[in-house]
Simulated scan of single mutants.
Amino acid sequence: MNLPEVTWRKSTHSGGQGECLEIADGLPAGSPVPVRDSKHPDGPHLLFPAPAWAAFIASVKAARN
């Protein structure tokens, strides 16, 4: 997947320790979710299927409650 037009963002819960993941914003709904290591922005990225990413986020939110 070519990602030149996406905007990468870090989690709002990033502690500023330099050990952050970034996700790409601006892709159509249902697209795979690109994730990369913020320390290596020009390095590879992983693609997660949208339903799997949504399930991951839901489980993280549920664990905080």
Results as ranks from 00 to 15, higher is better:
Ser59His: 13
Pro51Asp: 13
Pro34Lys: 03
Leu27Met: 12
Leu3Asn: 11
Leu27Thr: 11
Leu47Lys: 03
Pro41Val: 11
Ala52Gln: 14
Thr7Asn: 10
Val35Gln: 00
Ala58Met: 08
Pro41Asn: 08
Lys39Leu: 05
Gly30Ile: 05
Ala50Ser: 14
Asp42Tyr: 06
Pro44Met: 05
Gly16Ile: 09
Ser38Tyr: 02
Trp8Asn: 02
Val60Glu: 09
Ile23Cys: 03
Lys10Thr: 06
Asp25Asn: 10
Ser14Phe: 00
His13Arg: 15
Lys10Ile: 07
Val33Ile: 15
Ser31Met: 08
Pro44Asp: 13
Pro28Val: 07
Gly18Ala: 09
Ala58Asn: 12
Cys20Asn: 03
Pro49Val: 07
Glu22Ala: 01
Pro49Thr: 06
Lys10Gln: 08
Glu5His: 15
Ala55Gly: 15
Ala29Thr: 13
Leu21Gln: 00
Asn65Thr: 15
Thr12Pro: 01
Lys10Cys: 00
Asp25Ala: 14
Pro32Cys: 04
Glu19Ile: 05
Lys61Trp: 07
Ala50Gly: 07
Ser11Asp: 01
Phe56Arg: 07
Ile57Met: 10
Phe56Glu: 09
Asn2Arg: 13
Ser31Ile: 11
Ala50His: 14
Arg9Pro: 01
Leu21Ser: 00
Lys61Phe: 05
Lys10Asn: 02
Asp37Met: 01
Gly18Trp: 06
Ser31Pro: 07
Ala63Phe: 07
Gly26Cys: 11
Lys39Asn: 06
Ala24Cys: 09
Asp37Gly: 01
Pro4Ala: 10
Cys20Thr: 02
Ala58Pro: 05
Ala29Met: 08
Ala58Ile: 07
Lys61Asn: 13
His13Val: 02
Ala55Gln: 15
Val6Trp: 02
Leu21Thr: 00
Pro32Ser: 12
Ala63Val: 03
Phe48Ala: 13
His45Ser: 03
Asn2Pro: 11
His13Pro: 00
Pro44His: 10
Ala50Pro: 03
Gln17Tyr: 10
Phe48Ser: 06
Gly15Val: 07
Lys61Gln: 15
Gly15Arg: 06
Ala52Asp: 13
Ser11Thr: 03
Asn2Met: 08
Ser59Trp: 04
Leu3Met: 11
Asp42Pro: 02
Gly26Ser: 13
Asp25Gln: 13
Thr7Val: 15
Asp37Arg: 00
Trp53Asn: 09
Phe48Tyr: 13
Val35Leu: 04
Gly15Tyr: 01
Ala58His: 12
Ser38Arg: 01
Thr12Arg: 03
His40Tyr: 05
Phe48Ile: 15
Trp53Lys: 05
Pro41Gly: 09
Pro44Lys: 04
Ala63Gly: 08
Thr12Asp: 02
Pro41Glu: 10
Leu46Tyr: 09
Arg64Cys: 05
Thr7Leu: 12
Ala29Gly: 11
Ala58Phe: 08
Ala63His: 12
Ser31Leu: 10
Gln17Leu: 11
Ala55Glu: 15
Ser14Tyr: 00
Ala50Glu: 09
Asp37Glu: 01
Ser38Trp: 08
Arg64Gly: 04
His13Trp: 09
Val6Gly: 01
Pro51Met: 11
Ser59Gly: 14
Glu22Phe: 00
Lys39Val: 04
Val33Phe: 04
Pro44Trp: 03
Leu27Cys: 09
Glu5Trp: 06
Trp8Glu: 01
Pro28Glu: 08
Lys39Arg: 15
Pro41Trp: 10
Pro49Trp: 04
Gly16Cys: 08
Leu46Cys: 06
His40Thr: 10
